[in-house]
Structure formats: C-alpha cells, structure tokens
Amino acid sequence: MAEVTGIKEIIKPENLAYKRTRIMTDNVLSYCPGCGHGTTHRILAEVIDEEGLQSEAIGVSPVGCSVLLYHYIDIDWQEAAHGRAPAVATGIKRLLPDKFVFTYQGDGDLAAIGTAETIHTCNRGENILIIFINNGIYGMTGGQMAPTTLPGMRSSTSPYGRDVKVMGNPLKITDIIATLPGTYYVTRQSVHTPANVRKTKKAMLKAARYQKLNKGTCFIEIVSNCPSGWKMTPVQSNKWMEENMLKYYPLGDLKVPPEETVQNANNPEKK
C-alpha cells in the first residue's frame, strides 16, 4: 500500500482519531470520484460496527449504482430486483424479527419503479430502516431523468431540461412517507460536509436503536451528488447540490419520535 503521511511522530496507535471501519471490506468502491455513495456506505458501516450489529445485520441492496453494495460492507446481504427492496426486507424482517434489516436504494429504485413497495412497506410500519439516496438522476444507466430530477434540470432523457408539464414534477416522496402512520422517524440529510456527515451518522444511529425497540419504519433520505451524471467536478457538484437540490429538498427531520425513546434505547441491557 502506497501512502503519504503527515508528521510521523504523531502517528501512533494511541493517537488514532479516525480510521476506516473494519466493517468496510477491502474491495475498491466502484463509484465515480467524489460520489456520496461511498461516504454513506462508510457511515452505515460505522453505525453497524459501533452498535455491534454485524452479526445481526441483513442488508438489501438495490438495482442502481449501489447494486454491488454487498461487496463493500462485511455483513449478510440480499440483492433485490429493481424497486423491490422494501418487499424483500419485509420478507426478511417478518421471518427474522430480531435481525437488523435495512434497504439501501436510489431515487429511481425507491421513488419510481418501487413506489408501491416503498409506500406500502412504510404504511405497514415494517420495522426496518430504509436509506434513500437522492441524487436526482439515474447514475448507473448513464444519467437519465429520475423521479427526483429538478425542474429544468438536464439529463440524457431530458436534454432540454425537465419540462414539468410534459415529464411531471420531481417527487418529494420522503414528504409523503412522513405522513404515513407506520413510519416512526423520517429525516432528510446529506453527506457533503463534515457537519452533515455527523448528522447523517446520528440519524442512522437513532434508526438502528429504534429498530431494536420495534418502533416502525425509519426512513433516511440522503440528498447526494452525481458528478458524472451532472457533468461536474465533485466539488462543483456538491456546490450545485447545495444551491439547487437542497432548496427543493431541504435538509432536516420530517418526522421526529418522542425524544425519551432515544434515552431508553441508550440504556438497554447490553447483550
């Protein structure tokens, strides 16, 4: 492994402040440079590690850029058909209710082809975590218009910009999800700055704990970038995301559970 280091004297085990979690495998991520998927994977892996969930976790990967997610996090995985991850997760959780079950889906997967599965899984209040990556585009197939593509935004299938009169409006599916009684915690986050990474991690930690308490569906949208699909540098894409995506998809909690449940969750007898 080739590496470059800062001041050598500080590099001692006792000074370690941040290291890639061991739950991430050694496989090189297949994502483009600067893609938020990698950051989100790492946060998820850190939560699984820190909550001691590796032996309980069963993840469901989608169809889309993150289809190979099962190569990157060292837990048991199922790969679902496009849009069907919530149904697959329902099957898992109903039969293995003590496991930590989550899906990881993109906007096309969750908010277009899988809309019915998403809504009904949340409506039944399946006790799972849904992680929803919204970058407003179909990345894997080469940058086509997604259900969440912004008005006027160009893609390979909206080359003159999304005309909402013809192509429909961007779907704020998380807002819909938040209205369903089956959901317990619904939030919209991002991973493009350290502060947002921290917030996303906190949200995932909460969701993991709520699942242990059988609280219902937790839903975390992560507004993310797609430098290749948006045809920008990674840094430009994060800036564009802040200026455009976050206006349409503002960050923050959409449904907050009573806070005391979090405190209760902090003190269960450790297994």
């Binding site: 000074n15 370690l16 941040y18 990698g38 950051t39 350290p194 990474v197």
Partner: peptide
C-alpha cells in the same frame, strides 16, 4: 478528521495529540 469524514473512499486515517 473533516477530510476523512467526507472522503467517499475512506482513504484517510487521522491521528491527533
């Protein structure tokens, strides 16, 4: 650790004293 936290590929390890 800001750099490490936003690194999509997790290539940065941070030490502090």
């Amino acid at each position: 650790a800001n750099c490490a936290m936003v690194c999509p590929d997790g290539v940065i390890t941070v030490y502090k004293t």
